[in-house]
Computed example of a mutant assay.
Amino acid sequence: MTAASSAVPIVDSVQDIGKGYRAWFVDIWGVMHNGRTAFPEASAATRAFRDQGGVVVLLSNSPRPSPAVQEQLREFGVPDEAYDATVTSGDLTRHELGKHAGAQVFHLGPGRDRAIFDGLDVALSAPEAAELIVCSGPFNDDVETPDDYTGLLGALAARRLLMICANPDHMVERGHRLVYCAGALAAVYETLGGKVIYAGKPHMPVYELALETAGRLAGETLDRERVLAIGDGLKTDIAGAGSFGIDSVFVASGLHAPGEGGEALDAAHLTELFGQEGRRPIAATRGLQW
């Protein structure tokens, strides 16, 4: 299946489109939950796909390793039966940190993300003593913006420290609010001359890991045309799927769609978002449901 040159269709259900694939890569925040509570229709959709033999990999830019993300999913009301596996930016961040044994690391991010470092041979340090930066977001994303970090990031960039961005998202919805993520801070760091490694969507390593994971669960090697990505991020979920060569479905959210929950989503807005060139999503929906 490939994206056509005509307008991106708006669908109420992914059943007809999604059932033709062997595996789904499903974004978590904005698709499975809103940062507070689960979307029951989304869990029902992924369970229905699994019931017909499909494999569901939840593919997230969360800076937390998979065990912590899975626990959070349970707390929000996403049942274990809604997916087969998770692959997160936190998983890739830990892999990257494994290349820097013994390093002094400055963690730019909230304490709740410290599980990234559990069991690794690195030491957390103050910014002035750091040899490496791991950015998982603002310290307080309820109130802070990237502008609050210009001075700190400028001082770190002047020392030419490498930053590992543990969440390439720039913003996500939390409830009905938008909050800044690590990707927004990493973008500022790059403009100041800093070097960044991005551990997550839209960059290819996370998709390669997800494809390997899905194939192992399916018991076969999966070609990319048999995989569908479902997400609400234009520059992460949709762009990453296109670069990796897999089809995608765009889920409307407060990130890019007008109106709460994308009620005002229409063909004109989709044309504005995606234009007529490049690999566009094969469909758009106001919420994942079967």
Rank of each mutant, 00 (worst) to 15 (best):
L59C: 05
G77Q: 05
R74N: 10
P67Y: 05
L92A: 01
E41C: 07
D51M: 03
G77F: 08
L92I: 02
D80S: 13
S66I: 00
D80T: 12
S60Q: 01
T88Y: 01
A85P: 06
T88A: 01
E41N: 14
A38N: 12
T86P: 00
P65C: 03
A48T: 15
A85R: 15
Q52S: 13
R74H: 14
D80V: 10
S89G: 15
S62F: 00
R64A: 10
F76S: 08
R36H: 13
R64S: 12
V87S: 01
G35R: 04
P65I: 07
V56M: 06
V87T: 05
V57D: 04
Q52I: 08
Q72W: 06
E81D: 15
D84Y: 09
P79S: 10
A42I: 11
A45N: 08
V55K: 08
S66K: 07
L58Y: 01
G54F: 07
S60W: 01
E81H: 11
S43H: 11
P67Q: 09
V57K: 04
V56P: 03
G35H: 02
F49I: 09
G90K: 01
Q52W: 00
G90S: 14
A85C: 03
F39H: 09
F76V: 15
A42Q: 10
S43F: 10
Q70F: 00
L59E: 03
V78K: 02
V55R: 13
E41G: 10
T86W: 04
V57I: 15
A44S: 15
H33Y: 14
E81K: 12
T86A: 13
N61H: 03
A48I: 12
P79N: 07
V56A: 06
H33Q: 08
E75H: 06
T86Y: 01
G35A: 08
A38C: 09
Q72C: 01
E96H: 09
V69I: 08
A42S: 15
A85F: 05
A48K: 14
E75A: 13
S66C: 10
F76D: 04
P40S: 10
Q70R: 11
V78Q: 07
V78I: 15
P40E: 12
D51E: 14
N61R: 01
N61C: 05
T93G: 10
Q52F: 04
R64G: 06
F76M: 13
V78G: 07
T37R: 15
